[in-house]
Simulated assay, not measured.
Amino acid sequence: MRKTTTLLLCLISLIAYSNKGFSQNIADCNAELSVEKNRSVKSIGENGTFFTLDLKNTSNTSKTYTITSNKTEQPCKKSNIVNSKRINISPDLDVTFLTPENLNSNLKEISVTVNSGSSQKLYVKVEVPNGTPYNTWTCLKINAKSEGCTSNGAETILSAYISNPSEE
């Protein structure tokens, strides 16, 4: 009886300790990713455009984040309906990331280290490849995920309108 009680207490303690460690890992992965001055909607001209992002590490330790970009699966707020067939267009765009320390970067994904409680400014350069249809919208999901964290990370949505340069 005494061995069973001791074994049961050890097992409960192990489970409680494991869950505490897991929840601390989730809580310690917090970050915020925002667009400077809430300017998440922009028009893209012939020379492309830049979005300025702010990545804030709200965890208790320094973290290294991998910043990536993907087209959103759902259509943008604005509709891209073409002709009577109602085809939804969301063209692919060229996206690169830059930091204030490396403004000549041409990387499709970057890693940045941010100290606890600090922020890092990032730039997202969006360009239109040749042959992209004009007067269409594309929305991009920018994600900042910390190494070793199981959560999805911080994310923000950028909306880009591909304008016709002859109408500018």
Rank of each mutant, 00 (worst) to 15 (best):
L140G: 09
L11E: 13
T72G: 09
Y161H: 14
T113C: 08
L158W: 02
N143P: 02
S151W: 05
I162S: 10
N164W: 11
S43N: 06
N70A: 01
E147L: 13
E147S: 14
R86T: 12
K63W: 00
L93F: 05
E155D: 11
Y134T: 13
R86V: 12
T138C: 05
S159D: 03
N102Q: 14
K71W: 00
V35W: 01
G148D: 04
S118K: 14
N106P: 03
L158P: 02
T64C: 03
L158H: 02
I81C: 11
G117S: 05
K78P: 00
K63G: 00
L98P: 08
N130E: 14
T156K: 10
T72Q: 08
N83K: 06
T72H: 07
Q24A: 10
C139Y: 02
V128Y: 03
F50V: 11
K125H: 07
S119K: 15
T68E: 00
Q24S: 09
F50G: 04
F22T: 12
V112M: 11
V82F: 10
M1L: 10
R86Q: 13
N135C: 06
E147N: 15
A154Y: 06
L103Q: 12
T138D: 01
T49K: 06
E168L: 14
S105P: 07
N143T: 10
L107F: 03
Q24K: 04
S34L: 07
I162C: 10
N19V: 10
N60E: 15
I26G: 04
D94N: 09
N38E: 05
S90Q: 15
N130D: 15
L140M: 14
A144G: 04
D92T: 02
N106C: 02
S13Y: 05
L33K: 02
L14G: 09
T72V: 09
S119E: 15
P91C: 05
K20P: 01
D28N: 13
I12A: 11
N88G: 02
T136P: 05
L14M: 13
N135S: 13
M1I: 12
K108I: 00
F97W: 03
T150M: 13
Q74G: 03
F51I: 03
N88P: 01
L14D: 03
E36I: 07
E101T: 06
T61E: 13
D92L: 12
D92Y: 14
T66C: 00
T5I: 15
Y65V: 01
S23Y: 11
F51M: 01
L140V: 07
E168R: 13
N106V: 02
C10M: 15
A27I: 04
L9P: 09
E36A: 09
S13Q: 04
A16V: 12
F22C: 04
E127W: 01
V41L: 13
L11Q: 07
Y123C: 07
N80C: 09
N135M: 12
R2A: 14
T61D: 09
M1F: 12
N143L: 00
T136K: 15
S18Q: 11
E168Q: 14
N104V: 04
R86P: 00
Q74I: 02
S34I: 13
K108D: 00
F22L: 12
I89D: 08
P91G: 08
A31H: 08
N164E: 00
V95S: 01
K108A: 03
L9Y: 08
I87A: 10
G21Y: 04
G117R: 12
N130C: 04
N19G: 11
T58S: 14
S90V: 08
N106H: 09
W137L: 08
Y65T: 00
Y161N: 11
T138R: 10
I87F: 11
I81Y: 06
